[in-house]
Amino acid sequence: MYVIIVGGGTVGYHLTKDLVARGHEVTVIEQDEARCKRLTEEFGEVVLRGECDVALLREAGAERADVLIAVTDQDEVNLVACLLARRLLKVPRVIAHIVDPRNRPTFEGLGIDLTVSSTDIICNLIEQGAITTEIIPLLALGKGDLEIVELVLPHDSPALPLLLKDLPLPGDSVLVSIIRGDQIVFPRGSTTFRPNDTILALTSTKGVEQLKQVFYR
């Protein structure tokens, strides 16, 4: 893939490092001389120095780029870079890093659908950790409203005497598998539970709290 990165700060640097290591072609657009120097010394000729406008994007070969990622520390700059790339140079995929999560609806409204906000990610992690002390989120799916979670059954779990089919599971949750020691048990209606079973469940984010009540006292 050919990737154009706008902004060679900390995020841009590590993105470049990662993408280059995976064998992708990368060009970084960066204004600051010291940052450009550091990137060139480490990754070779990957830098175009200057401000991200259409002329520089053309010089970077944006017409053949597969994706542009804007990761400067200014949301406004990232927005403009993405819009120029998308609208004028028809880059098929643009991704914007946003500092202030309140700007997300604006980006979406202007057609930049893929935004990444570290503030949002950290807040979600904290929130999930806070509401589910024993249920560990493993993977967020969709737009984050569906997730795969892991939970370990305690000795006093109210689920222990019951068959799976008798569990009051929330309607939008499915048990995916049960890990018992080094065995994997595929859950059926007749499955029973044992203490220390590790359960993987697919659930809506709303269902997490209810799942907790099914398996924990």
Binding site: Q74, D75, E76, V77, L79, V80, L83, T106, G109, L110
Partner: peptide, 16 residues
């Protein structure tokens, strides 16, 4: 005094 703030603000006004 920030050109990009002006641009983004104008895009909000114009397109949204």
């Amino acid at each position: 005094d920030n050109d990009y703030v002006n641009l983004m603000a104008a895009l909000v006004a114009k397109e949204l």
